[in-house]
């Protein structure tokens, strides 16, 4: 079952989100998937229990414009994704600097595919 998403470019994001807000959509959340050499960012919006999804694909190491100036609620989730995937957001109103959830000891960006295998290897070493 496919998820119907509207694919847009990174530069269109701010304008697209602002137009959704203008017609009464509220921000639900943002999902991020590691595709190997790029990330899929899926923005979920909701209006009267009808959902609409925007998808942008960014290369690793790219920055994404933050939508926390449009929806304040996006603040937490953007910080979370910064922790987990290492994607930098431009113009985040409150930046925890990648330590929203994680302490110094934990390796960086645990949700990226390369690093997911590491804890297993470390466990076997114990």
């Amino acid at each position: 079952m496919a998820l119907e998403t509207k694919n847009i470019a990174k530069t269109q994001l701010q304008a697209e989100v602002a137009s959704l807000k203008a017609v009464g959509y509220r921000f639900v959340t943002l999902s991020c998937v590691d595709l190997g050499d790029s990330f899929d960012l899926i923005y979920h919006f909701d209006r009267e229990l009808q959902m609409t999804h925007l998808r942008i694909t960014v290369l690793k190491g790219d920055t994404v414009p933050s939508i926390s100036n449009i929806y304040f609620a996006a603040l937490c989730i953007e910080n979370e994704i910064k922790d987990f995937f290492g994607i930098s957001f431009d113009g985040l109103i409150l930046d925890f600097g990648g330590h929203f959830y994680l302490e110094e000891e934990v390796k960086r960006y645990p949700f990226c595919k390369v690093s997911v295998k590491e804890p297993q290897a470390a466990k076997e070493g114990n």
Binding site: Y101, L102, V106, K107, P110, S115, V116, E118, P119, Q120, K123
Partner: peptide
């Protein structure tokens, strides 16, 4: 428990 393989 069930989480002991999780990274954090």
């Amino acid at each position: 428990g069930i989480f002991r393989e999780a990274y954090n």
